[in-house]
Design a protein around this nucleic acid. Structure first.
Length: 307
DNA sequence: TACCAGGAGAGCG
DNA sequence: CGCTCTCATGGT
């Protein structure tokens, strides 16, 4: 399996395609899919666990997901005929075994895979992903979740939910964010990131940054484009490239990945960030970005590496 | 309480 | 260049 096919191919497992009848739910057969780990691994910030189900909003749709053995059971508020949007988001068509087989066989990666097997990369909306990671700088994941929730509540359009469920909101469009006051945004607890978010929204509304065009650009060009947004440096750009576009050679190096790389690959000598990035580009193979997510989650949750 | 958080960017020597 | 400081806010 090539990297490009992973980026462009849609899944073909949406069972209800065969009937093309509208339904409020579907079932995706999956192998090696740890839904809970995937939704809490710091790549997305909108999913909440309620009564053993994961509730969230994708685009303009409320969604409830439940892991059930070798399947993911999905439920929506409104009838759906074509489930490709959800299959694509969840990346259920990817063979995880094929991805893991490309990882280097060194001890840290083996330990990370053993600890986090079933962890997947999602395919998120670029604007929501970009905005979310603008909030991420020197914020803990729990705080990023809080900022995103407040922003959606206050600026996002309400979406339909089933009877008895709490209100849900879409992620606000860039037009809405661009029109907001900085003080309103700061009130969502994003602090000094507020002007950056608004500037990002304005660049997108003005067409100065075209998120749609990035999908087909080479990695380096797409990264440079994202880094023209204030508040977006190499790390955040790589997060968006990986989590929203599926550029598998994007390798975000945050504090946790930095700790993991230092601890596991360069013990007892400090290596500069730029040199570490050069190492990651050659060491982790064609799915380096995927390997990065395993390292990140392993370092943060399992290994609990110290500073 | 003190330290730190999925950083970025300006200012300095 | 490479280092340090600041930015805002809350968790642990």
């Amino acid at each position: 399996m090539t990297v490009s096919s992973t980026r462009s191919r849609y899944s073909n497992v949406a069972a209800s395609d065969e009937t093309s009848r509208a339904a409020r739910g579907t079932i995706f057969p999956v192998h090696d899919y740890d839904l809970a780990t995937t939704l809490t691994s710091g790549q997305v910030f909108r999913w909440e666990l309620r009564d053993r189900c994961w509730e969230g909003v994708i685009g303009q749709r409320w969604v409830r997901l439940r892991a059930d053995g070798a399947a993911i059971i999905a439920e929506t508020a409104d009838p759906v005929t074509d489930w490709r949007w959800l299959a694509d988001y969840l990346q259920v068509g990817i063979s995880l075994g094929g991805v893991l087989a490309t990882f280097p066989g060194d001890e840290p990666m083996c330990a990370a895979v053993a600890a986090c097997r079933g962890l997947r990369l999602l395919r998120q909306d670029p604007w929501e992903c970009l905005a979310s990671f603008i909030f991420s700088s020197t914020k803990q994941i729990v705080q990023i979740r809080q900022i995103v929730a407040l922003l959606c509540e206050r600026f996002g359009k309400p979406v339909a939910v089933p009877d008895g469920c709490r209100p849900a909101f879409a992620f606000p469009a860039p037009q809405r964010v661009a029109a907001a006051d900085e003080s309103e945004l700061r009130a969502c607890k994003m602090g000094f990131r507020a002007p950056n978010l608004r500037a990002a929204a304005r660049k997108i509304v003005d067409g100065e940054v075209d998120l749609g065009r990035l999908a087909t650009a080479p990695t380096g060009a797409a990264r440079d484009e994202l880094m023209r947004v204030p508040g977006v440096g190499r790390k955040i750009a790589d997060c968006v490239l990986l989590f929203a576009y599926g550029f598998q050679d994007a390798f975000p190096v945050d504090v946790w990945v930095m700790k993991a790389l230092q601890h596991f690959y360069f013990p007892r000598r400090r290596v500069a960030l730029q040199r570490l990035q050069k190492f990651t580009a050659s060491h982790f193979g064609p799915y380096a970005g995927y390997a990065q997510q395993y390292l990140f989650h392993y370092a943060r949750v399992h290994a609990k590496l110290k500073v």
